[in-house]
Design a protein around this nucleic acid. Structure first.
Lengths: 332, 332
DNA sequence: GTCAATATTGTAAACGTTTACTATACTCTT
DNA sequence: AAGAGTATAGTAAACGTTTACAATATTGAC
């Protein structure tokens, strides 16, 4: 139904190779014929078939982006950072939500490979890189984002989570807090682990350690922070500060704290992580740790394109580490 | 480099038509050969080439999603609603941010058509549907979301914005407010216009109308609300309530109001629109109008798939209208 | 054991491009 | 006016599938 190069060729009275050349601005086609061809293409409302082209060129100018959940305010910024650069470079991007499920993530990886994307950007649902992953990742350029161990054999871009955890802990300590509760997302998340590690090392420096019941884990949603905090209060095991491994968790905790009539930061100081947009609004003003999300997406794409455009060079695993930064607002 | 159907055929000692049949679970291939073929495919780590398949089948099981900005908290939910259903149906989705620019939007439309997506989901950057758009939209199924006039000739799914504006206005009036300021996003946005219309009709019912300087427009970002509100305060033209055409604008206004030491809702009541996640957090608790975002994405996909799967039926423009709902929290 | 019916497999064209190679037609040079 | 060189155009194969059609093998009925 669509007009093709052959239709144009027929009308112009030339071979379709010539049409292809004309349309692609290749050397060696008479300016007059070229103009004629362009005119006809325009008239026929011709749209080149990228599928056919992809088949012969073996590249699709498309990459896949797999993230846990675009609805989590951390990821839109990453996605936007990626998309902005990709768009400038003429690539399109598949959006895939793994919903924190390894199974769905894997399904997407396979699907995207079938669709022959030129590369893959993944913010993994869990930190572990399985054998199956490794096998698939050999097929095409892949860049992992956020919370992945090094030595995975795959390029990655991560935050210095240890440092992030450290500066958060340090800040709370400097505020004179001594009974600090760590609220983490999934316990087997590598980035949560690192943040916890940094946090405990700050405690250690002051000769302190994590008190009983002062390290709790759930998932990455607000509700989880709410429930954990509520639990603590009910049990009368009340900390004087909370360090949540992400802002949503912190927001949930804040909800619980103020519902129970405690004051923030007087009774309990709260510090989050990631600095999502919500954190800065009046009334929230959450103290947190900045995570350069947009930049992370952008840099991930930069690394990926580097690989895509130099498929032969056999560099080993590359890793870039971003720096966190303390953002002091009103909750701590 | 990738193994193809032909490689498998050679090893299995059958024609590649047979391999294709086996791989696609078609009737009429001997179970024994099928198993053999499947085994070989597995061993060779075979991944079917969706590009080649797309070329012959003339469908890609891919749709495009064009939205203004995934970073605006309204859109991730829409995207997620769309993606969840699409994933279940075996489709993938291209994410495209138009950045509120008509030019970028058009560029994406063309690009996606070249990539032969099966359909297009668009939340337009501006309400106008141009001649050029109309021409392109004839090429493939398209569903427009949010703030589009009917009669565009294209299927669409929208909110009843007039009603939304009306209930917001009504609520403020019932609270006894009389000098209400409307803060809109872009003045030529159709949905802003509709919300304004509903708002003024509520005023009208009470024998009121919009006072001078009490209808201001900017863009869709927080900053815009902040600036407009600040301006009003500086000029001493201070309303007793604000109706913002989206939550971000409302949040910006709130920022300005409280910075200037005025109280919410005592001095100025504020009501937003869309009910983004931030609106519900403690400390924000923005009164607003619920916009079923996730559902909108989901329904849009449902309409789109309907068209994709019945390409021949010549139904005329379809339009589904979602209902808004007042969410009373603390700012009004 | 023959024939028809059916199950299984193969052949080849098609999808819409790109591109290496070849062929032809000009344009200069001398 | 011949020959080299260059500009332009054409031919045909390739990319990896699907699928209509044809061919062959197998089965069952009698």
């Amino acid at each position: 139904m669509d007009t093709t190069i052959k239709d144009i060729a027929k009308i112009a009275g030339v071979s379709y190779a010539t049409v292809s050349r004309a349309l692609n601005d290749k050397y060696g086609v008479n300016p007059a014929t070229r103009d004629e061809i362009l005119k006809i293409a325009e008239e026929l409302n011709y749209s080149p078939n990228a599928i056919a082209r992809g088949l012969v060129k073996k590249q699709t100018h498309t990459v896949g982006l797999i993230i846990p959940d675009i609805t989590n305010p951390f990821f839109p910024e990453v996605a936007r950072g990626a998309e902005d650069l990709l768009e400038r470079e003429g690539y399109s991007i598949f959006l895939c939500n793994s919903n924190w499920e390894k199974k769905r993530e894997n399904k997407y990886i396979n699907l995207l490979i079938e669709k022959r994307v030129d590369g893959l950007l993944i913010a993994p649902s869990t930190s572990a890189v399985s054998e199956a992953d490794r096998k698939q990742f050999k097929r095409l350029p892949v860049v992992l984002m956020s919370g992945v161990q090094s030595g995975s054999g795959t390029d990655s871009i991560v935050l210095n989570n240890v440092k992030g955890g450290y500066i958060a802990g340090r800040h709370l300590l400097e505020l004179g807090r001594r009974k600090i509760c760590f609220i983490g997302g999934s316990e087997d998340s590598f980035s949560v682990k690192e943040r916890y590690e940094g946090f405990t090392s700050a405690l250690g420096e002051s000769g302190l350690s994590v008190l009983p019941g002062m390290a709790e884990f759930g998932d990455y949603r607000e509700k989880s922070g709410y429930r954990i905090m509520l639990d603590l209060i009910e049990k009368k095991n009340i900390p004087d500060a909370v360090f949540a491994s992400n802002d949503l968790l912190a927001l949930g905790a804040i909800q619980a704290i103020s519902e129970r009539g405690l004051r923030i930061p007087e009774d309990i100081a709260v510090i989050g992580f990631d600095n999502i947009a919500t954190a800065s609004f009046r009334g929230v003003e959450l103290t947190t740790v900045e995570h350069p999300k947009y930049k992370m997406g952008e840099l991930a794409v930069k690394m990926l394109l580097e690989r895509i455009e130099n498929p032969d060079v056999e560099k080993r695993e590359e890793r870039v580490v971003l720096d966190p930064e303390l953002i002091v607002r009103k909750t701590a």
